[in-house]
Amino acid sequence: MRPLTEPETQTLFTKLANYTGPSLKALIAPPPSSTSKEDSRMVFRMHQSRVYYCSLHIANLATSIARPNLLSIGTCLGKFTKTGKFRLHITALDIIAPHARYKVWVKPNGEMPFLYGGNIVKAHIGRWSEDCPEHQGVVVLKMDDTPLGFGVTARSTADTKRLEPTGITVFRQADVGEYLREEDTLFTT
């Protein structure tokens, strides 16, 4: 387990910034209510090509566990591929969702198709953030604001208005259905 290097940090932040706005700063900055500053600081740690987000206190405690024995620490954000790219996992949804820049709300009839790994068609969209460009990361929510996953827009908001109801509007990247579908591989290293 080690901290991230500079290019790794940049890659990670670029990926996160795809989905979040400038409020991403809140991820690094400590919460104002905390009393002991240094220990409550949130840090990113890399362990076997996976990036974990946890408090410094926990990260320091984890150093006492041998590397092969350490399975997970804090929240797993995703993993670095062998080509140096970063792939976000569904486990990062809890961190991304509160800071999302663009959102798409899915109608109840579109929830299950999305949770089974399908893309979102225009007919299933209940509401969505205005002025969203093409190929932009969006967080997918239920109509009652429960996050279901995230994806990438296939078309801009203006283009979507002209689209037929069966046309794909959001390409799925990750959904909470993965917790069941990818149960065997999600937490293995």
Binding site: R2, P3, T5, E6, T9, Q10, F13, A17, K25, A29
Partner: peptide, 15 residues
């Protein structure tokens, strides 16, 4: 390694 808050903030600002 980049572990201090200041440098992380600068990287984040650039990104």
């Amino acid at each position: 390694f980049v572990d201090d808050q200041q440098s992380m903030m600068t990287i984040l600002a650039i990104v």
